[in-house]
Nucleic acid binder design. Structure first.
Lengths: 342, 342
DNA sequence: AGAGTTCAAGAAAACGTTTTCTCAGGAGGC
DNA sequence: GCCTCCTGAGAAAACGTTTTCTTGAACTCT
C-alpha cells in the first residue's frame, strides 16, 4: 500500500509544472493540446486522482448536496429521495443523505456538519428547528430548500403542499357521497402536516354545515397499529356506534389500513357499513380489500421538483415551476349512500 | 458575510501559538489547564470551528462512514439504515447514505468517491460489482462490509442471511400442514437473494418427496403489482386450477399482497381455498385480511449488527457476534388441511 | 524591424490544519 | 551548585491543491 500519487507526481512524470496539471484538470483554458495529452497520459499511468480535500480546502466550496431528513423509515421519503438524487446528480452534484431521527440536537448537528463541509446546498426536512433558526442558517449563506414545511420569511424556498386543501377535498368527497358522521383519524399533532390536514377536514365539515358532526381522533403515532388501535377502542367503547359514524377519513394510508383491519375484525364490512379514505397512495393501497380511495402524491415528481428548486437556489436563479399536483384516486373503499352524488 | 475565523485567529486572540490551539482541540495532551481555558474562551468568542477539509487533508482520514445501497425505495432498507446509523453515530462517526440505483457504473463511481473522501469505512449493497472487484477494493485498504451478499474470499466481512434456509422453513411449514401443490412466486432472478430463496423452496419440496410438484413462477419485478399480475395470469390461463395449487409461497410480502388480491378477485378465499405465505413481515402484513404468515427479519437489529461489524472491520478487531435470527410469524393466511400438523 | 499584444506555462503564495522538531525553564538527583 | 531530565509551548514544515503573478516567446501591426 504505497502513497497515493499526487499532482506533483503527475507534473514530474509529464515534465511540466504543477500549475499546468491543475489547469488540465480544471478550467482547461489555455493549455496546449499536446501538453494536455502528455499530462493526461502521465496521470493515467500513475493512477492519479485529485484529492478532494485539498481542492475543497482551497476552493472553499464543494459540489455536494445534502439531504437531512427525519427518519428513513418514513415511507414516501424513499421515492422523494430518489427524485432529488436523479436531478442533482445529473447536474453534476454528489448527493448524500443523513437523518436526524427527530432530534433537534441532531438536526442542528447535521446541518452544522453540512455547513462545515461547505456543501453547495442542503435540503432539510425539519421538525425541531424554529422558523427563525432556519432563516438564520440560510442567512449565513447556505442555500437551503425546506421540504414539507412553510417557514415564515422563507416561503419561496419551501416546498410545501396544500395538505389542508387536499384533506378538505377528500373529506368533501365523502360528504358529497352522503356521509355526514365522518371520523377523522389524525397522526400525532406535533407535526404541522398533521395539523393542517386536520384543519382541512374541519373546514370541509364546516363548509357543508356539519360542524357539529366533527369527530377527530388523534392517534399515538401514525402507523397501521395506531389506526387499528384507535378504531378498535372506539368500537369497543361503543362511541363509534353511538355517534353513528359511516366513514373514516384518515390522514395517511397506514392509518387507513389499521382502521380497516379493526372494522373487519368487528364484523363490519367496507364500504357497505363504513367507508374509509386514506392519504398518500402507497403501493398497497391498490391491493387491499377493498382497495383504498386515497390522495396520490407523485413522490418521484416531487423529489425532482425539490431537486430543481435546490439547483435554482444554489444558482440564485428564479424558479417558477409549479408544484406537482395531487390527485384523488377513487377506489372501492367508499360507499355512495342515499342522496350521495359521485 | 465575513471570513470564517480560523485557527490562527484563535491563536492570536488567545495570545498563544497555533500549535497550542491545535493541541487543545485534539489530543489534549500536555497543555496547561489555564492555557487551554484561554484558548477555549477565545475560540468560543470568535466562533471558531475547525475546517474539516484542512484537517482531513493532513490526517489523510476521516470519521465518515458511508452506505451505498441500490435503491432507497427498497422498503426494509430504511430500518436497516437507521440501525446502522444509530450504532456508528454513537461511536462518533458521521454517517452518509447514497444510492447506485442498480447501475454498476454508479456503484463504482460512488465507491470511488467514498475512497477519495477517505471514508473510514463503507457498507455496500451491490448487485453490479463482481466478487473480485469487491475484494480488490478492500485490498486497496478501504474497510468494507458487504450486505446481502456472500462474496467469495471475503465471507467474514459479509453480512449475509440464510435465505435458502428460511424459505425452506416456511415452505416446509406449508408442507407439514398438508399442502403439496405449492406455487413459488419469485422476484427477478437476477438477484442472488431471490435465487437462494427459490433454491430453498425447491429443497423443501424435494426433501418431502414433492419434487414433481414444484411450480415456480418468476415475476417481473417484486412488488404488489408483480404478484398480482402473475397470479391473475395463472388463474386466467387455468393453470392454477389444473395444477391443483393449494398454496402460494411468496418471496416477499409485497408479492404476497398482490397474490392475495388476485385470488380474492377470482372469488377464492384465503386461506380456505388457497394459503399464502410472505417473507419480510412488513408492518401491513399484520393488518391485511387475512393477516399474513411470513418470515420476520428484525431489520433494526440487522442494521445494528452491520454497524457493529463495520466498526470491528475498521478497528481490525475480531467480530464474532451472531447474526440476528429470523422468525416465522404464524398468522391467518395458512389453512391446515387433511393430515396437516401445525 | 521594432513595439505592442497575446498567450501558454512556470514560480510561488495561499488555503487551514497537524505534527515534528526545537527550545527554554523548572524539577530533581547527586 | 551543577547536570540531567522532563514538560509545556513555539517555529516551521507538511498535506495537495488552486490561482495570482511573472515571464518569455510568438505573433500582429504599423
Amino acid at each position: 500500500m504505497q502513497k497515493k500519487p499526487n499532482l506533483l507526481d503527475v507534473a514530474e512524470k509529464a515534465g511540466v509544472s504543477p500549475a499546468t496539471v491543475s489547469r488540465v484538470f480544471n478550467n482547461n483554458s489555455k493549455v496546449n493540446e499536446q501538453m494536455r495529452q502528455k499530462v493526461l497520459k502521465a496521470a493515467n499511468e500513475i493512477g492519479y486522482k485529485t484529492n478532494i480535500y485539498a481542492k475543497a480546502l482551497i476552493e472553499g466550496k464543494t459540489n455536494f448536496i445534502g439531504l437531512l431528513l427525519t427518519r428513513f423509515e418514513i415511507r414516501h421519503y424513499s421515492s422523494i429521495i430518489s427524485g432529488i438524487e436523479s436531478v442533482v446528480s445529473k447536474a453534476g452534484y454528489r448527493f448524500f443523505v443523513t437523518s436526524s431521527r427527530y432530534s433537534k440536537e441532531k438536526e442542528m448537528e447535521k446541518i452544522n456538519l453540512f455547513e462545515d463541509l461547505n456543501f453547495a446546498g442542503i435540503v432539510i426536512i425539519s421538525v425541531g428547528l424554529s422558523d427563525e433558526e432556519i432563516v438564520d442558517i440560510s442567512r449565513k449563506g447556505m442555500p437551503i430548500v425546506v421540504f414539507d414545511r412553510n417557514v415564515k420569511g422563507y416561503q419561496d424556498k419551501c416546498v410545501y403542499f396544500d395538505y389542508h386543501g387536499y384533506q378538505k377535498d377528500i373529506t368533501s368527497l365523502l360528504i358529497r357521497n352522503g356521509h355526514e358522521r365522518i371520523l377523522h383519524l389524525s397522526g400525532t399533532t406535533e407535526l404541522q402536516v398533521y395539523r393542517e390536514k386536520c384543519n382541512g377536514y374541519e373546514a370541509a365539515m364546516e363548509e357543508h354545515g356539519l360542524a357539529d358532526d366533527k369527530t377527530v381522533r388523534v392517534c399515538k403515532g401514525a402507523g397501521n397499529d395506531s389506526g387499528y388501535e384507535a378504531v378498535r377502542q372506539l368500537l369497543e367503547s361503543g362511541e363509534f356506534v353511538s355517534k353513528g359514524i359511516t366513514a373514516i377519513n384518515c390522514q395517511n394510508d397506514q392509518l387507513a389500513f389499521g382502521a380497516m383491519c379493526a372494522l373487519k375484525e368487528a364484523g363490519l364490512s367496507i364500504p357497505e357499513d363504513v367507508s374509509v379514505t386514506g392519504f398518500g397512495d402507497v403501493p398497497e393501497a391498490a391491493y387491499t380489500t377493498p382497495s383504498l380511495t386515497t390522495v396520490r402524491f407523485n413522490h418521484s415528481a416531487i423529489g425532482k421538483y425539490i431537486g430543481k428548486k435546490m439547483l435554482s437556489v444554489i444558482k440564485k436563479e428564479p424558479f417558477d415551476e409549479v408544484v406537482p399536483p395531487f390527485e384523488i384516486i377513487g377506489r372501492n373503499s367508499i360507499k355512495y349512500i342515499n342522496g350521495g352524488v359521485q
